[in-house]
Amino acid sequence: MTGERRARGSLAILIGGAVLGIAAVVVYWFASHEEEAWVSWNSLHAVMLAAMGVAAGVAIGSSAEVRRWTTWESILTAVLGGVIGILFWLWGLFWELLEFIKAGIPGYGYAVRDLFYGLWFLAAIMVPYIVRRPGAALSAEMVGAIISSLLGQQWGLTVLISGLAQGGLAEVVFALRGYKHYDWLTLMAASAGAALGSWIVDYAFWYNTLRVDIVILMLIARFISAAVLSGWLGKALSDALAATGVLDNTALGRARIGG
């Protein structure tokens, strides 16, 4: 892929994200200035709305890029997303065991439990690291979400929204790096982006009645977890796979051999 192509891809995605993100905040601003507010939102809700706007904009911006992928890139993204989707689903069952940690340590148990959250961003790190195409993070994370929700999860189809936010914010990081750099820094930043996305959605859906210090601790726990379970693990697994030779025809494989 040429540098010009990459630059155009990242520009489209960033513009998409920015436009819809700003639009969401504008809508919020007007809505919350109504005489009798029909929404009881606070500033965190504004952030959430903005994030969802960004994610949706990234999705629209990516879709044109994703259309340009080869069949091999598309199938690889979807199949890896699907396999990781099974892992998401299994992780969801395991997560139910963690309910006991959460219940056992009142309140702060939420944050302790969230130390295991990071695995749910694996697709958004591993697949772009391998495929290295605009739209890969969002696409893979969405496929993982679709597959895991089709298998039946406690959060139902709301994981599609989570997938959009997680993949979308990770995608923003890859776009900001111009789809040129896939080093530790980028991967960690993308993990953090995905963690932020997940936290925003979950806050809106499940946790906005909890005390602020607990919610902030949850965010920190997710950053830590994302760094290990998706950033580090995603890179380690991809590199282990590349060593087997099965990724020789991917961007990661070519980058490794220097071809």
Partner: peptide, 11 residues
């Protein structure tokens, strides 16, 4: 995107 869509079917 249709290629990705068919990818999901494959997956």
């Amino acid at each position: 995107p249709f290629r990705l869509g068919y990818g999901i079917l494959v997956a």
